[in-house]
């Protein structure tokens, strides 16, 4: 494996770890449920996507085995993240979860 590929894989790994951590920090410290929903759906998804890409590149570069399961995992995560976020938002609206004081607008429940 050349140095450039190694460098690329390392950068992808670190980016993935940092974004997963940012998603978790968002989950831990943002003020209410609806704002907390943003961290995991975006930051964590792209973090794990980046790690999956790094894994794919590592195995393709190390022993030239082009197994596409990592890419499948990545695509699957990107497809399911907005759906589970949507389901959770609907459940939260039904349960009338509290919003922070400075939220404009109202959630509706039908």
């Amino acid at each position: 494996m050349t140095l450039a590929i190694e460098l690329g894989i390392s950068i992808l790994l670190i980016i993935g770890g940092v974004f997963a951590l940012i998603g978790a920090i968002g989950l831990a410290r943002l003020p209410d449920f609806y704002t907390r929903l943003h961290g995991p759906t975006k930051a964590t998804t792209i973090g794990v996507g980046s790690i999956a890409l790094a894994s794919f590149a590592y195995f393709a570069g190390a022993n030239a085995s082009y197994d596409l399961i990592e890419l499948l995992i990545m695509v699957f995560l990107f497809m399911t993240a907005p759906i589970s976020a949507n389901f959770l938002a609907k459940a939260a609206m039904h349960l009338k979860v509290k919003t922070t004081d400075n939220t404009r607008g109202q959630p509706w429940d039908q």
């Binding site: 997963a20 998603g23 978790a24 449920f33 995991p40 794990v48 894994s55 959770l88 459940a91 939260a92």
Partner: peptide
């Protein structure tokens, strides 16, 4: 709230996938 806990579980399994890949 219960929804917060479900969201935390959701994030946990995504992180578990990352750990397995690593």
């Amino acid at each position: 709230d219960a929804t917060d806990r479900v969201l935390a579980l959701d994030t946990l399994y995504i992180n578990a996938i990352a750990l397995i890949l690593l």
